[in-house]
Design a protein around this nucleic acid. Structure first.
Lengths: 210, 210, 210, 210
DNA sequence: GATGAATGAGAATTCATTCAT
DNA sequence: AATGAATGAATTCTCATTCAT
């Protein structure tokens, strides 16, 4: 699929890799890193802990990812790729708007994304890449909105596509972050309101124009 | 003002303190910790760095805050108190709704709040306290909305006060988080849309009902 | 009682004391120190922990016992005095031999005594005092044996009083030390053998000659 | 020799080792730890001091023994192995009974053993292992006694093998502990008495029955 | 009598990284 | 492709002690 390729291929800048890209070991390390980071926070994503989680020796982790930044970057790229795939799937879904909203409130991915936002604070190398990916996602969402809603957005009182992306992402993230904290007050109301709003924008019965 | 007192006084539970509560040194440590955390992320809020930033010896930090959790908790309480004060000020402002929106998009405070949300992940002691404060803030905002908007919220299509709080907080946080990353696409639109929306809810000319 | 006085008074060398000797606080500190040492080993008998256990501030402990050695020495003196009292009580008991054996296998006191023996290794100030007390106890026991057994010890095959003291103390300590470890193999047999032996030396029916 | 193997091989459970088991560095660390512990007590067996004594960097000690418990356990195992070897040598000696008595009063080994007994107090992981080893030693000694003394122990007035083991170990330990303190009153008598007793049990002229 | 503040030393770990094999 | 050895820096925390009040 052309669109997917566009989004995924265009961010090469791969971590200076030593071990082969397709190695099973490499994949195991990344998976372990993902678990560690989700469970214990980004600060815990150290060579040692990742190695322990993967049942490997620390040296081996360094063999595949010479520096910690390399590892984190690779991990981010993996998540970004999965995230892109999810977005493309939403674009292709019968009801793209609601599929997007589901993706934006999907706990599994967003938890990691939040860790990376925190990480960006003091890993300048990561920040640029994360920003770049965020912008690409936004652009892609704008495409989706324009495609799915078209002139409805141009109507008076409506929010332009780019703003809509910010709004939905923000609300989705709020629901997830607070949910992780155990705070749920107002969540049902907010969710209902967003969904009612989406209904007004794109009645569920007739999701696609094409 | 009674209401302010209610909100501020009700969260005592101070960190197990060793050094006196009113000490200048203690305040200096907290300020240093705040800077470090804002600038370098929560993981950098170590005894050493905080001490270095405050121009003190590391041992002294431990004298005032025996464990790192004690320090972080105290720091959170400080921020929470300031945040509460800001909220109360908004409540008392001539145009409470817009004052609240300004507070929610105030970079200085929210940046720290985000670090704490990330921290909550793996500091269970903090999580409970953060969740509690979030809920208190939400409840207080609900009061504000009901007070400022009253029957307007009951109108068809409007979002209940609790949901409104989630929505505004989420959007505000998104603007700040992305802004910190350097991502600004759609921000102006989202901001404009929120403001237009607030205008509809509470026309700027007649903000207060009382 | 003259004998008791002899034994107790002759080892003054009191810790450089600041707080009054009879102070309740001082006594509380010593009791706390005793508990800490029994429960967590001599290495844990720090100013801080003792203070915490006693519910006092660390500075107060230092007020009464300027250095750690002062505290440890005072604690030893307290135990020694109690130990002396026990020995004198045995001497005065109707069946002194068995009362002594009971004292030598008394868990409560001996556990602390063992900690002090370990401590003696690297607290030269303590070592001298502990050695001195051990020797005094031995001498006193010799008196007891000569008094209680008299010519029986002179009989062929019997152990001289001083040796008997070493033997009984050693076996008693072994029972206690191993008991603390959870090792009990052979204990019943050893105990039975010692008791049978005491029976031969001083038939239970006629304990005292005087 | 089969018996030796039985005793020595059966206590593997090596400390979680990171550095190779046969490494010279590892051995050097253990030797240094042994010296430190013998000279300054168990509380002094810290990473720093051990490293200093071995002329190594502290980090290297942690490389081989991740936690202090690992180091202490390895050190105990080393001592236990040597102790086992000594016991087996006694068993094989022409006069096993006296060889055992010599081993039980051997200062070099027993001093360390005492430190470990004190340590067992607050290192539960060690305690189990120490207790286990003590019991194994006892069992082995019982074999020795039954083998060397046979029916003589069954004679009237004699102590069963297990009790004999407790008694000899206790007296031996007393001689060593007090000797370390500088207390020697009654030692010669006790020693002479034990030796006379051994003579009665197993006349020096005809030590072995087989 | 008692206490709060301060400090230097040291302990137990953890970590990222380098190097040689 | 993988690994063991080594290291210097950092982190969290504990401690004994001093000093001024």
């Amino acid at each position: 699929m052309a669109t997917s390729a566009t989004l995924t291929d265009s961010s090469p800048r791969p971590a200076r890799r030593v071990g082969g890209e397709g190695s099973v070991t490499r994949a195991a390390i990344l998976t372990a890193a993902e678990h560690v980071m989700r469970d214990e926070g980004y600060a815990a994503a150290s060579t040692r802990r990742v190695a322990a989680r993967a049942g490997l020796k620390p040296s081996l982790v360094h063999y595949y990812f010479p520096t910690t930044d390399d590892l984190l970057l690779a991990l981010f790229e993996k998540g970004a790729a999965e995230s892109d795939a999810g977005l493309e799937a939403a674009l292709a879904a019968p009801d793209p708007l609601r599929a997007l909203w589901a993706a934006l409130t999907d706990t599994s991915r967003t938890a990691l994304a939040l860790e990376f936002m925190a990480l960006a604070n003091h890993r300048p190398g990561l920040r640029a890449r994360i920003a770049e990916h965020s912008e690409r996602m936004r652009a892609r969402q704008v495409t989706l909105f324009d495609h799915a809603l078209g002139e409805r957005l141009a109507a008076e009182g409506a929010c332009p596509a780019a703003g809509l992306s910010v709004v939905l992402a923000g609300i989705g993230r709020a629901l997830i972050m607070e949910g992780a904290l155990g705070v749920t007050g107002g969540h049902a109301e907010a969710r209902a309101w967003v969904e009612a709003w989406l209904d007004k924008l794109a009645p569920a019965g007739a999701p696609r124009r094409d």
